[in-house]
Amino acid sequence: MIIKELKAGKNKDVPLKIYFDFRGEDVGRYWTGNISAELPGAKPVEAHVGHSSKHGWYIKAYFPIDGLLKLPKIPNEYEKILKKEKAKGYKCKEVAFLITEDEAKEIRQIVEKKIEETEKKAEEYFSKRDVAYIGIGGDTHQLYVADFDAPKEFRETKAYGKWQEHWEKILKRIDRLYEIAEKTDITTPLYNVLFSDSNCWGRVSLNHPAVKRTVEEYEKELEEKKRKREEAERKREERELEAIEEAKRTGKPVYFEVVGYIDGDDYNQVKMFCPEFLDDFGELGLITIWKVAYPDGTIREKAVPSY
């Protein structure tokens, strides 16, 4: 999908087309990936927008020399021939056209929006997915989950990573997983020992009764952990309120919770966390970090040496 067409080159007479090409890359203030660039006589190749203190904003890409016969004739203010062979076995020309800051910002904004749209589409896709591909690493015996049917750009999203992590946590709980998996003809560099007689990945229905039972158990555990966290938070808040009330009533600080310790014989720790004690270094012992409630209603942490 073309997101921008520019006139590049020293004389601004070279048509340069910019495509959105999602590769799961982050977008920063001075760097924008997830794009491809196309020049006359060449197919679109991976590109990025960047910035340098010397040249300003630019779009850079690597074009195969053999596939871009017109390139050496294009006026270009920032380019060089690469002398080494690339991974695919052809020589390339690194090309970077200067662009304006406004053009760079526009491309970044468009790419950010497209990334957001792609993530949302991927989330919807994986939320409805009822099949997963599984493999077990021969060296680590770790379970791996994949979706080889998903569109390539979806497999680069954060949503895909979350989907994989979710189902890996669930499916690894099932004993003899290979018994409910259908053997496929898909092989990858992963040394896969899911099936004893092949290196193939398996396909599992996420609606299988064994999977559904495991999902129910997993969700109950999550709910119980959530309940315990909320209960612990409620008790913590109660302790803080009680300590504040006591401090206000007595007019004195109330030490009510230990949150950590510092080795008073470790100079670097004291310097980093308790520099106020450096004059007494060597006579501190174990330093206890307390939560303290004060009469003014505030709660602060205070370091207390044992000596």
Rank of each mutant, 00 (worst) to 15 (best):
A104S: 15
E94N: 05
F97R: 08
A104Q: 02
F97G: 01
D102W: 01
I115R: 02
E94S: 13
E79T: 15
A96M: 04
K80P: 01
Y78A: 04
A87F: 11
I81M: 13
E79D: 12
E106H: 08
A87C: 00
I115C: 07
E112H: 02
T100A: 11
L98M: 09
E117G: 14
E101C: 00
D102H: 08
I99G: 07
E85S: 05
E79W: 15
E117T: 14
G89E: 02
C92M: 06
Y90E: 15
K91E: 00
K83Y: 11
G89W: 05
Y90P: 02
C92T: 04
Y90G: 10
I115Q: 13
K114D: 12
A96T: 03
K84E: 05
G89R: 01
K113M: 08
A87I: 04
L98P: 01
K86N: 11
T100D: 13
E85W: 05
L98G: 14
E101N: 10
Y90W: 15
K113F: 01
E117Y: 05
Y90S: 11
E94V: 08
K80M: 05
K84V: 00
D102S: 04
I107T: 08
K105I: 09
E103W: 01
I99V: 03
E85Y: 06
V111K: 12
L82C: 02
K91I: 08
E101K: 13
K114M: 14
K113W: 05
K83D: 13
E112Q: 12
L82D: 06
Y78T: 00
K113T: 08
I107R: 07
F97K: 08
C92I: 09
Q109T: 11
K91Q: 00
I81K: 04
K93G: 03
E117W: 12
D102R: 02
T100W: 03
T100V: 04
I81V: 11
E106G: 07
E106K: 14
E106D: 15
E103I: 01
L98F: 05
I81S: 10
I99F: 04
I99R: 04
A96C: 01
E94D: 04
K84A: 00
C92E: 11
K83F: 09
K88C: 03
R108Q: 09
A104L: 12
V95Y: 02
A87R: 14
V95M: 14
K84R: 00
E117V: 10
K93A: 06
I81Q: 09
L98V: 12
E106L: 15
E79L: 13
K86L: 03
V95E: 02
K88P: 01
L98W: 05
G89L: 06
I107Y: 01
E85I: 12
K105Y: 12
A104P: 02
A104H: 07
I115Y: 08
K80G: 06
T100N: 00
V111R: 13
E94Q: 08
E112R: 12
V111Q: 12
Q109C: 04
C92A: 15
A87Q: 09
K105N: 15
K86G: 10
T100E: 11
L98C: 03
R108G: 05
E112K: 14
K91Y: 02
Y90C: 12
I110G: 09
K80Q: 06
R108N: 09
K88N: 15
I99C: 00
D102Q: 06
K91V: 03
E112M: 09
Q109R: 12
